[in-house]
Every structure is written in structure tokens, then in C-alpha cells.
Amino acid sequence: MNPIGENTFIETELLIREGMAPIDALRAATLNAAELCGIDSDNGSVDVGKVADLLVCRGDPLEDIRNLRNTLLVMRAGRVVSDPERLTRGMTYAHPFLT
């Protein structure tokens, strides 16, 4: 298995450990990445009109970036794809591949 999620967390943690401001590390993992891909008009930040790709976590990630690991909800294009604490009972989309 290639732990893409874990790698992404570790990358942001290492950027901060080497001196980057947490908000910039988070920007690197979101808006700057979308810019690199040429799709930042649609992705990469929480702005009105953009695709609703969201990570909701418990705890301030700017205070401790490891809080990104405390997943409360993941939304992709407006669809709830991860909801470990069942905050959105009935809304979670389960892919047939997983069921």
C-alpha cells in the first residue's frame, strides 16, 4: 500500500518543522497545489463558487498541524465521503467498491 494520506500529512508537518509558517504549509498542500495543476479557479480554497472539497477536523491545525489527522468529516464535490463520528447520518456516500 502507498499511504498517500499519511505522506501528505507528514509533508506538511516537515515543512513546518523546517520553519515554514503553518498557514503557508497548509496553503502549499491546497491552493498552491491547485495552482500548479492549473485548476485553482475551481479548487484549492474555501471560497464561494469553488468545488466543495473540504476537510473538517477537530482542533486548530495552525496551532498544531497534526490536528489535520483528527478527521471529523471529508467532503468531495459536496458529497460526504468520510464521517467517522456519524455527524451527517444518512448523508455519507459509500462507494460500491467498498461495500
Binding site: N2, D53, N67
Partner: peptide, 16 residues
Amino acid sequence: MAGAFVVPGLWNVHTH
């Protein structure tokens, strides 16, 4: 979701 933090969905731009 009182107290929760919302960040943009993360990207990994070098993935195999």
C-alpha cells in the same frame, strides 16, 4: 460543528 476547523481538501501533487 461548533468548534471544528474547516480547511480545503488536501492535495498530493506527486502521487504514484
